[in-house]
């Protein structure tokens, strides 16, 4: 039975590894910055800076657990941001509804393109992001679209904290306990077998892309509140930040049964602390990027090789 507790040891390591990285990053920066990162206002700032990424990463867990990707998240945040800015001149709640609606619509299109027409998820969403970036350039004539001044007072931390907690807890409940979440993971673990267990694959995929679009819509709305205006490069590269955050949070790369919702929360926090800490230490742009690259590769190597070993053991055992 030796191989059994070896396997258990590795599984335990894989589960707690994201927590270790979070603690290491948190403590590391606290020491290096002489306690400045622990300052309340700074922590509030870290939360505010990673608020929108938390939303979209949460929704992305559903997609990645089905081994699907959405390369258009950044463009959707940009587009919904512009829509929110334009409509906010009329009235704010309508602006929120418009942003959500546009996000859901684009999500639906993505879902149909991949779920029904069967186009490869990456290519379909990459093309969609190309189209959306083009539309964005036209809508704001490659400049900025300002938001109504009244919208600024929406920018309190309390509101954001509430929205974030409600969204994350809701998503966690759905992912962990609802049959929809379980079906997502089953699709990721084995699509053909999932079909024969009565899972309507196209339906699950469309729902997940719509949910992703909705999250991007909300993120777009709050991004615009934070920056005061939507620009043609708003939300740029959000899809890659999501991917990095989820992997830092310990999410298996091709989804499946091991996917955990918490990897979104932990991953985004690690990324938030990292970005904030490096600026705090006055690191230049390029050293920052190199550090991010090194950490990403190390975490990747660690989790991927060990997870492979566990799976291989499972097959062989």
């Amino acid at each position: 039975m030796k191989s059994n507790n070896k396997k258990k040891g590795m599984e335990l390591f894989i589960n707690i590894f994201p927590f270790i990285s979070l603690i290491v990053v948190f403590v590391g920066f606290a020491l290096l910055s002489g306690g400045r990162t622990l300052d309340i206002t700074n922590c509030r700032k870290i939360f505010e800076q990673s608020f929108t990424l938390l939303l979209v990463a949460g929704a992305a867990v559903f997609l990645l657990s089905q081994n699907c990707l959405d390369m258009s998240v950044g463009a959707v945040i940009g587009m919904t941001g512009v829509v929110a800015a334009l409509v906010s001149k009329i009235n704010i709640p309508l602006a929120f509804a418009a942003a959500l609606g546009v996000g859901v619509l684009i999500g639906l299109i993505n879902g149909i393109l991949h779920g029904v027409l069967g186009i490869n998820a990456m290519i379909a969403t990459l093309a969609m992001s190309f189209i959306l970036r083009g539309l964005l350039l036209i809508v704001c004539k490659s400049g900025t679209v300002g938001i109504a001044v009244k919208m600024y007072d929406l920018d309190q931390v309390g509101l954001k904290m509430a929205v974030c907690v409600v969204f994350l807890v809701g998503a966690w409940l759905f992912f962990q306990f609802h049959s929809y979440g379980k079906q997502c993971r089953a699709v990721g673990a084995g699509e053909t077998a999932a079909v024969q267990s009565g899972i309507h694959i196209a339906f699950i995929k469309i729902i997940s892309y719509v949910f992703m679009g909705a999250a991007a819509g909300i993120a777009g709305f709050f991004t615009v509140i934070r920056t005061g205006a939507a620009m043609y490069n708003t939300g740029n590269m959000a899809e890659f930040d999501i991917l990095i955050a989820l992997i830092l949070g310990g999410m298996p790369i091709n989804g499946g049964a091991d996917s955990k919702f918490r990897s979104a929360v932990i991953g985004v926090l690690i990324l938030g602390i990292l970005n904030n800490g490096m600026v705090l230490l006055g690191l230049d742009t390029y050293p920052q990027l190199i550090t991010k690259g090194i950490i990403f590769i190390l975490v990747l190597a660690m989790t991927f090789t060990i997870r492979n070993k566990i799976n291989r053991d499972k097959k062989m055992a």
Binding site: A127, F130, R133, I138
Partner: peptide, 10 residues
């Protein structure tokens, strides 16, 4: 505007 390029190609 070259935005149209992105849309057309996508």
């Amino acid at each position: 505007s070259s935005a149209i390029y992105n849309i057309v190609v996508g």
